[in-house]
C-alpha cells in the first residue's frame, strides 16, 4: 500500500468492486412502491377518518421506506453490520416521538 520511504499521505482509496445485479429488482421495487402509493390514495377515500386509518398509513409509509432503503439504497446487499450501524440509532428517535406526542396531547388537554 505504501512504499517504505514515503512520507506522503495517500487517503485510503479502496473501493470494492460491485457487480451489476441487473434491473429486475429495480422494476419490481418500482411496482411495489407504485402500488402502495395507489393503495394510500384509495384508502384515503375508502376508509373513514379514524386512528386505525392513520396507523395503516404509517405502516404503509414504513413499508415504502423499507423498499427504498433496502432496494434503491442497496442496503439489502450491504453487509448486515452496516445495516445495523445505520438502522439501530434510529431507535433513539422513537423516544423523541413518544415524548413529544405525549406532550402535544398534554397541551391540548390543558
Amino acid at each position: 500500500m505504501h512504499t517504505d520511504n514515503s512520507n506522503e499521505y495517500v487517503p485510503e482509496t479502496y473501493v470494492p468492486h460491485v457487480e451489476s445485479q441487473g434491473t429486475k429488482e429495480i422494476w419490481r421495487t418500482l411496482t411495489i412502491l407504485g402500488i402502495l402509493t395507489v393503495v394510500d390514495i384509495v384508502l384515503y377515500f375508502a376508509m373513514p377518518l379514524t386512528g386505525f386509518r392513520n396507523v395503516v398509513f404509517i405502516l404503509l409509509g414504513i413499508i415504502k421506506a423499507y423498499y427504498i432503503v433496502a432496494s434503491f439504497m442497496h442496503m439489502k446487499h450491504e453487509k448486515v453490520d452496516l445495516a445495523a450501524c445505520i438502522l439501530v440509532p434510529i431507535i433513539l428517535v422513537f423516544g423523541l416521538i413518544a415524548g413529544l406526542l405525549y406532550e402535544g396531547n398534554f397541551w391540548l388537554a390543558s
Binding site: 433496502a70 453487509k79 448486515v80 445495523a84
Partner: peptide, 15 residues
C-alpha cells in the same frame, strides 16, 4: 457484535 442478534431480528440476509 450486535450483528448476530440483528440478523435474526431484522430478517436481513447476511452478506
Amino acid at each position: 457484535h450486535f450483528s448476530a442478534l440483528l440478523l435474526r431480528w431484522l430478517g436481513l440476509r447476511n452478506a
